[in-house]
Simulated assay, not measured.
Amino acid sequence: MPLLPAVLGGLLVAFLLLPVAALLSRGLGPGFWPALQGAAVQDALRVSLLTTGCAALLTVVLVTPVAWGLARFTFPGKAALETLLDLPMVLPPVVAGVGLLLAFGRQGWLGPPLELAGIRVAFSPAAVVLAQLFVAAPFYLRAARAGFAAVDPNLEAAARTDGAGGWAVFRFITWPLTLPFLLEGLILAWARALGEFGATILFAGSLQGTTRSVPLAIYAALESDLGPALVLSAVMVVVAFGVLLLVRGLAGLRQE
Score class of each variant (00 low, 15 high):
residue 47 V to L: 02
residue 233 S to L: 08
residue 145 R to Q: 15
residue 105 G to H: 08
residue 207 L to I: 14
residue 240 A to P: 01
residue 23 L to S: 13
residue 168 A to G: 02
residue 156 E to F: 09
residue 189 A to R: 00
residue 183 L to V: 14
residue 218 I to W: 00
residue 12 L to A: 15
residue 47 V to Y: 03
residue 127 A to I: 10
residue 87 L to E: 08
residue 237 V to E: 09
residue 39 A to G: 09
residue 239 V to Y: 06
residue 39 A to H: 14
residue 21 A to G: 05
residue 42 Q to F: 06
residue 170 F to C: 13
residue 54 C to W: 15
residue 159 A to R: 10
residue 226 L to H: 06
residue 81 L to I: 12
residue 87 L to G: 02
residue 234 A to C: 09
residue 45 L to T: 01
residue 256 E to H: 10
residue 104 F to S: 09
residue 226 L to M: 13
residue 148 F to D: 04
residue 13 V to I: 15
residue 2 P to L: 15
residue 86 D to Y: 05
residue 78 K to T: 10
residue 209 G to Y: 09
residue 171 R to I: 01
residue 39 A to P: 03
residue 149 A to T: 08
residue 217 A to L: 01
residue 125 P to W: 11
residue 61 V to L: 15
residue 139 F to V: 00
residue 4 L to S: 05
residue 56 A to M: 11
residue 38 G to P: 03
residue 196 E to I: 05
residue 172 F to S: 14
residue 172 F to N: 03
residue 228 P to A: 10
residue 198 G to M: 13
residue 148 F to Y: 15
residue 175 W to K: 01
residue 210 T to G: 01
residue 195 G to H: 04
residue 198 G to E: 08
residue 63 V to W: 04
residue 84 L to N: 03
residue 52 T to N: 09
residue 250 L to R: 01
residue 187 I to T: 11
residue 116 L to I: 12
residue 73 F to G: 03
residue 9 G to A: 14
residue 209 G to P: 01
residue 152 D to K: 05
residue 77 G to H: 13
residue 77 G to V: 12
residue 199 A to Q: 05
residue 12 L to F: 13
residue 220 A to C: 04
residue 88 P to H: 03
residue 244 L to W: 13
residue 123 F to R: 00
residue 45 L to C: 07
residue 84 L to S: 10
residue 33 W to Q: 06
residue 136 A to G: 02
residue 222 L to D: 07
residue 169 V to W: 11
residue 152 D to G: 07
residue 48 S to C: 07
residue 113 P to H: 06
residue 249 G to W: 13
residue 25 S to A: 15
residue 149 A to F: 07
residue 243 V to Q: 01
residue 142 R to K: 15
residue 196 E to Q: 01
residue 130 L to R: 04
residue 223 E to T: 11
residue 88 P to Q: 04
residue 44 A to H: 05
residue 235 V to F: 11
residue 112 P to E: 05
residue 180 P to H: 08
residue 94 V to Y: 12
residue 41 V to L: 11
residue 206 S to R: 11
residue 124 S to F: 15
residue 227 G to K: 12
residue 233 S to Q: 08
residue 223 E to M: 09
residue 161 T to I: 08
residue 151 V to Q: 02
residue 150 A to E: 13
residue 244 L to Y: 13
residue 20 V to F: 07
residue 85 L to T: 10
residue 126 A to C: 12
residue 221 A to Y: 05
residue 49 L to S: 14
residue 195 G to T: 09
residue 138 P to Q: 00
residue 159 A to N: 08
residue 44 A to C: 07
residue 233 S to M: 09
residue 209 G to S: 12
residue 189 A to F: 00
residue 46 R to N: 06
residue 92 P to E: 09
residue 31 G to E: 06
residue 114 L to K: 09
residue 214 V to T: 08
residue 252 G to Y: 02
residue 35 A to N: 13
residue 64 T to Q: 12
residue 51 T to R: 06
residue 253 L to N: 04
residue 55 A to W: 06
residue 241 F to E: 12
residue 244 L to R: 07
residue 163 G to M: 11
residue 67 A to N: 04
residue 42 Q to P: 02
residue 231 V to K: 00
residue 127 A to E: 12
residue 186 L to M: 13
residue 212 R to D: 03
residue 50 L to P: 01
residue 3 L to V: 15
residue 238 V to K: 00
residue 102 L to Y: 14
residue 72 R to T: 14
residue 232 L to Y: 06
residue 219 Y to N: 12
residue 162 D to L: 15
residue 181 F to M: 03
residue 141 L to G: 00
residue 4 L to C: 02
residue 31 G to K: 04
residue 143 A to F: 10
residue 130 L to A: 05
residue 58 L to R: 04
residue 118 G to A: 05
residue 179 L to H: 11
